[in-house]
Amino acid sequence: MSARTISIHHIRGALAGARRKGIDLDPLLHQAGIAPVLLDDHRARVTAEQAARLVRVLIATLDDEFMGLGPHRSPRGTFAMMCHAAVHSADLRSALRRATTFYELFPGTPRFRVRYRGGAALVELDIRGVRDPDHFMCEGIMIIWHGFCSWLIGRRIPLRGMDFGYPAPPHREEYDLVFGCRSTFGRGGTTAATFDRKYLAMPVVRDRAALSEFLRHAPADLAAVPDYATSAGQSVRRILEHAAPARLPSLDAVATQLSLSPQTLRRKLAEEGASFRQHRDDVRRDVAITALTDSDDTIEDIAARLGYADPSAFHRAFKRWTGTAPGAYRSART
């Protein structure tokens, strides 16, 4: 699973339905390996594996694949039934039609609609009636939709853009990474994904055996951060993630791998509202959080792995990234 980390905002959103039902959240968080105290720190982050475990725990506890966020319960197994209906389609357009028709059998479920604009296709999501103040369900459905459609045709569908029908959240910079495209907010009140309509004509290449393997982890793991790279920042991040954390390549070296001049790469990153240093720090932050969460390595060893000769420098950096000292972060986990 991805070493990238996920904002605590998404964890709060996932818990909204259980909280509304009066369920004690601490045991659910402990089952997922997430310290409850992290909910109170807006800079806190969790690993993709922790987030996926929490989704599985919530679905099992509530027997609801919408995790208490929809107007009606969607019992466990509903998503699998939809997948079985769609996987036998000839092409992606037919699969989407079957999936949409399937969910229309259930009252109050989110509705998809496919529209066309020139050579582009728009998949619009209607979530009226959904009690989702943090938009976790809306965003999760779009991630799962994209992941499932890409899986059906055996290749990732590059998105041209994501439009969200609500104001931009404080962590808006993460959306471009999650969806692999530029995201806009608050335009027209509609949430939609735009992509080249040619993908709708591509054949479904999966069969029943492949679906059985797919469903061992879906839908929970589909919500883990995808490994997309369609912007300069995402391409930079992918290169950095494949390097040793203590020896992350320089901007010049990354620019060479991307066949760009350093000046062009710096300009592209600035146009996306980020810097090369920020991406380097984000990679180190995520490696540190994963190590503190999933290993028993000493903090000194983690600091050395990240290239810090002085552990105190790592302490200062980690506190700047997350608002918490590394020792306190690990103690909160346990």
Results as ranks from 00 to 15, higher is better:
138 C>E: 15
203 P>T: 07
180 G>F: 00
231 S>P: 02
140 G>C: 11
154 G>H: 09
192 A>Q: 09
238 R>V: 02
233 G>T: 01
202 M>N: 09
203 P>H: 07
195 F>N: 05
154 G>D: 08
199 Y>T: 05
205 V>S: 15
231 S>Y: 01
166 Y>K: 07
176 D>A: 15
179 F>W: 06
174 E>W: 11
180 G>D: 01
149 C>V: 06
210 A>I: 11
198 K>R: 14
217 H>C: 15
165 G>S: 07
226 P>M: 04
138 C>Y: 03
236 V>L: 01
135 H>I: 02
197 R>N: 10
176 D>Y: 05
185 F>Y: 08
132 D>W: 01
200 L>M: 09
212 S>R: 13
218 A>T: 04
147 G>N: 05
182 R>S: 07
234 Q>W: 02
153 I>Y: 01
234 Q>N: 08
134 D>N: 15
153 I>K: 01
132 D>N: 04
232 A>Y: 00
180 G>S: 05
214 F>N: 02
170 P>Y: 13
180 G>M: 03
235 S>Q: 13
174 E>I: 12
202 M>E: 11
131 R>G: 09
135 H>R: 07
240 L>M: 02
146 H>T: 05
196 D>T: 10
171 H>D: 13
190 T>Q: 10
145 W>T: 00
172 R>P: 04
204 V>L: 10
177 L>P: 00
172 R>E: 14
128 R>L: 11
155 R>Q: 15
156 R>N: 14
216 R>Y: 13
209 A>W: 12
177 L>M: 14
236 V>G: 00
230 T>M: 08
211 L>Q: 11
175 Y>F: 12
137 M>L: 15
205 V>A: 14
152 L>F: 04
171 H>Y: 13
236 V>Q: 00
133 P>T: 08
226 P>V: 03
225 V>M: 14
130 V>A: 07
169 P>G: 10
160 R>P: 03
200 L>T: 05
195 F>M: 08
202 M>C: 12
239 I>N: 01
200 L>K: 04
138 C>W: 03
150 S>Q: 07
138 C>M: 15
214 F>L: 09
130 V>G: 00
156 R>Q: 14
224 A>S: 13
195 F>R: 04
196 D>Y: 09
